[in-house]
Structures are given as C-alpha cells and as structure tokens.
Simulated scan of single mutants.
Amino acid sequence: MSNPITIYTDGSSRGNPGPGGYGAILMSGNHYKELSAGYRRTTNNRMELMGVIAALEALKKPGQHITIYSDSQYIVKAIQQGWLNKWMATNFAGGKKNKDLWVRFYNLAKGHHIKFVWVKGHADNMYNNKCDQLATTAADGRNLQVDEGFEMDPNHLTL
C-alpha cells in the first residue's frame, strides 16, 4: 500500500466575481508539491473547488487514501453533509451553482478514498496559510486563464 496523501487547498477571489486563484499543497512520505493558477474572472467558491480539483488531477494512481484540508465550509459541508450527493441525484435542480466543477470533482473523487477536514482560515496552520499565499499570488498574477465554466455561463455574462 502506498503512503497516504495529505492535501491542503485554498481559493481566492479579488472581488466576487473578480480575478481569482487557487493554491494546493500535496504531501506524501517525503514528496511535496505546490500547485497554483490564476483566472481573470471567477468566484471564491469556484477557486476553492479548483484547488481541490487540481490537486486530485495531479495524482498519478487511483485508489489513494487522501485527507484534504480546506478552510471552505462550502466544500467541506457539501461532502460531509451529503449535499453533493443530493445535487448529483437531482442534476443540480434549483439552480445550484458550480455544477461543472462539482461534476469534475465527483468524477475524480470516486476513484479515491477521501476524507475532508475543515481548518480555520488565516489562522495558525502553516500549510493553509501557504495555500492562501499561493492563491492570492496567482489571482494577482499576469496572463490569467479563462474560467470558461464561469465566463460562458449565461447567468454571469455582463455587457
């Protein structure tokens, strides 16, 4: 059996919506990897989700035992309280937001054994603080990517 994987994630948005970014740290045994990216127009919740998705997409093997630490109540509660399963079962009826990212996460997650743990943001957890720094630096960067799921959604189009 391979080492368990610990992941810390955070998302940031300068305005909501506005420029945003995510940060993620993956650790297993003596392996350590940081990930981040910035987007020109998005929301904080989307960036929180993108941090988790990017971390899971970086994994090379299925069936991993993973603990994900996030300061996002939105993500942690969606998993721990079964909201995501209800959203999936009803095809996100009632206009639940971020369907594209939740479906992407769901498909990635089902291949692993994942436990979510909520951590207080901007507190004394050095990995959460580092993820925050990665996310905000990415949001403030140049050559920001397009969050197509947000920008192409007719509910978010502006003239």
Rank of each mutant, 00 (worst) to 15 (best):
N3A: 14
N3W: 12
I7P: 00
I7D: 05
G11A: 05
G11S: 08
S12C: 08
S13Y: 10
S13Q: 07
S13C: 15
R14T: 15
N16D: 06
P19C: 04
G20W: 00
G20H: 02
Y22C: 02
G23R: 05
G23I: 10
A24R: 03
M27V: 11
S28Y: 15
G29D: 13
G29E: 05
N30G: 05
H31A: 15
Y32S: 09
K33G: 02
K33C: 14
L35D: 01
L35N: 01
L35T: 06
G38F: 01
R40F: 03
N45P: 10
R46A: 03
R46G: 01
R46D: 06
E48P: 08
M50L: 15
G51H: 06
G51D: 01
V52S: 08
V52I: 14
V52D: 01
A54D: 07
A55Y: 03
A58Y: 13
L59R: 03
K60Y: 12
K60H: 15
P62G: 07
G63E: 04
Q64D: 10
H65E: 10
H65D: 11
H65V: 09
T67H: 10
T67E: 11
I68R: 00
Y69N: 11
S70I: 12
S70K: 09
D71H: 02
S72L: 13
S72F: 10
V76Y: 03
V76L: 12
K77F: 12
K77D: 15
A78I: 09
Q81D: 13
Q81T: 12
G82W: 00
G82A: 10
L84I: 07
L84F: 10
K86E: 14
K86S: 14
W87C: 06
A89T: 07
A89D: 14
T90M: 06
T90L: 08
T90P: 03
N91Y: 10
N91A: 12
F92Y: 11
A93Y: 08
G94F: 11
G95N: 09
G95T: 11
K96T: 13
K97E: 12
K99P: 09
D100P: 04
L101E: 08
L101A: 05
R104I: 11
R104G: 00
Y106R: 06
Y106D: 12
N107S: 06
A109I: 05
A109R: 04
A109W: 00
G111E: 13
F116P: 03
V117N: 07
W118D: 00
W118P: 00
V119T: 09
A123W: 04
A123H: 03
D124L: 06
M126W: 04
N129D: 13
C131Q: 06
D132F: 08
Q133E: 14
Q133K: 12
A135L: 09
T136N: 15
T136F: 10
T137C: 01
A138T: 05
A138N: 01
A138M: 03
A138Y: 00
A139G: 06
R142E: 13
R142S: 14
N143V: 06
L144W: 05
L144F: 04
V146E: 06
E148W: 08
G149A: 09
M152P: 03
P154K: 10
L157A: 11
L159K: 11
L159F: 12
